[in-house]
Amino acid sequence: MTPPETGRLDVRKTYKLYVGGAFPRSESGRSYPVHDAKGRFLANAAHASRKDARDAVQAARKAFPGWSTRTPYNRGQVVYRVAEVLEGRRAQLAEEVQHGEGLSRRQAETAVDAAVDRLVWYAGWADKLAQVVGGTNPVAGPYFTFSVPEPTGVVAVLAPQGSSLLGLVSVLAPVVVTGNTAVVAASADRPLPAVTLAEVLATSDVPGGVVNLLTGSLADTAPTLASHMDVNAVDLTGLAGDPEEATRLEQLAAENLKRVLRPPDAEPDWTTGPGLDRMTRFLETKTVWHPVGV
């Protein structure tokens, strides 16, 4: 292509996967065209394969011991740092959200701002949730007994198909702030903000492997994640409106008793304030007993 008469030729970004802290292309070598809301070509994104999904699970498992044993204060700071870095990328993300979701510039900016604010909200929960959902148990005997929340492990998240950034942040932040590691399948048709978010994560103290991000068709990645024996939980939110596929994946998830968050009938309004559910859903309660005596 010849450069325009005036100005410079822009350098386009290659949108890749984010696995184990690195940005690989799909091992399959496949990519797929991403279009804006009006059908115009935006970019080629990596089309993650089943193998990519397995690699991502492996990376998430490897990152779990380190991330889950960080102090809650530290995890809170890391998630807050993500918000800080995201704040600096607002313009770029607003553009991607605007084109991908077909919003006005102003609407896109509002969505990006809400995503930043949501991260800040969740960051603060890291060192507070244990006191809200845990505590001591007044047992009828000479024992000191307490219950604490712990992360369930590796969580596979099918991100919302519609809200490509705010929705994504709203499902991802509650999973990782409590110490889980995540493999996220981004919105299939609107994957670009997810890849940019991955770049934000890579530059904001989130250890490699804590969040792994796959783009491409859910048909390849989702069943692999739902049936993977080293995945502890699966969030099916991205299948809102597709109850048949959600049922199939829930059945696959039963093989190793994964915790399953079923999808809503339709994608929810992500601008409303979240409760604790998305955090507690992916937590285990550990109860500890010790005798009391001299």
Binding site: V139, A140, T145, K286, W289
Partner: peptide
């Protein structure tokens, strides 16, 4: 889900 330290098989309705 339940860890007993220096005891075992203790149950109580107040204890998850």
């Amino acid at each position: 889900g339940v860890v007993w330290a220096n005891t075992f098989n203790q149950f109580d309705p107040t204890s998850p």
